[in-house]
Simulated assay, not measured.
Amino acid sequence: MEYALEIDGAPDSVAGGTSVLLLHPSTGETDRIDTDFLKTDTDHFLVVSTRTTAREVKQKLEHYDVDESCAVILDTLSIERGYSRRSGDDIHYVAAPDDVDGIVRQVERFLENYDGKLRISFDSVTELAYYAGEDAALEATERILGLLEEHDAVGLFHLSEEVHDDDTVEQFRAPFDGTVDLDEDGSVTVEF
């Protein structure tokens, strides 16, 4: 299955199973790239949020005019922070942002339960590393990349390169098919 990509400098389309790492400065404005990725050529998408709550994800999707009927959100923060939450078909929770197995299980459940062109946005791997440690975050990322291949889906994973040393960034970059490097001035460099 082929997926169209709306990222400047990237190929017009990629095969199912393709994974893209979005490298950005800690102050980088990633929402535009993220939402363009999600709203193009998609039947259903999952936003795994280790950085914001489901409510904030919904606000972002609405602001960028992304079809929310296609959206499923995995909120990793609300339970630990004691926020009220209401599970439904389109919003799921894990107990804490370091619940790596719970996150991977929810990604797998999404990929098994939906048909068509499926996309995942993981925002952010840096936050997962903050809560669970870099080794656990890398292992979870690799497990999810395997699921993307298995289910012919595509994924975009956020990583703030200012937070990690160069060796760690390279470790995270290695298993990905492509890298989108967002500079502070908003310019984008793409490597596939």
Rank of each mutant, 00 (worst) to 15 (best):
V188F: 03
I103P: 00
L147M: 07
V104W: 03
I7P: 02
D12Y: 15
S78G: 09
Q171L: 09
F157Y: 12
D115G: 13
F110M: 06
E68Y: 00
A4W: 09
I144S: 05
L111M: 06
E68Q: 10
V190H: 02
A54N: 11
I7K: 03
D67S: 03
V94N: 04
E162S: 09
V163Q: 07
I144N: 07
Y83T: 12
S87K: 13
L138A: 11
I120E: 12
V154S: 08
R81Y: 15
V94S: 03
I120H: 07
E134H: 13
F37T: 01
Q106I: 02
L145S: 11
Q171V: 04
N113W: 06
F172T: 00
G9Q: 11
K39N: 08
V48Q: 03
V107P: 02
R85Q: 14
R55A: 14
D167Q: 15
H24G: 13
A129N: 08
S84P: 10
E170S: 13
L22M: 04
I103N: 00
D75R: 05
S49D: 06
L156T: 05
S160I: 02
A153P: 04
A140N: 08
E161I: 03
D12L: 13
P97N: 05
V169M: 07
Y3D: 07
D135R: 11
I73S: 05
L46T: 00
L21H: 00
A136F: 01
H44M: 00
V47K: 01
D165C: 02
L46C: 01
C70Q: 13
V72Q: 06
Q59C: 01
D166S: 13
L74F: 05
P25G: 09
N113H: 12
E62A: 10
L111Y: 08
R119F: 09
E162C: 01
L23D: 03
D115I: 06
S13M: 10
Y93I: 00
H158M: 09
L147Q: 08
L77K: 04
E127H: 15
V163Y: 09
G155C: 06
E56C: 02
Y3S: 06
F110N: 03
G17T: 04
P175C: 07
L138P: 01
D43C: 02
L38W: 02
L46W: 00
E161Y: 14
G178T: 04
R109E: 13
D8Q: 14
H164R: 06
T52G: 12
S78A: 13
D90I: 00
Y131P: 11
Y64D: 07
E134M: 10
D185Q: 04
T52F: 14
H164V: 01
V20L: 10
A71P: 02
T52L: 10
T179N: 08
F45T: 01
A174R: 15
R86D: 15
D41M: 06
D177T: 05
S69T: 09
Y130N: 15
D167N: 13
L111A: 07
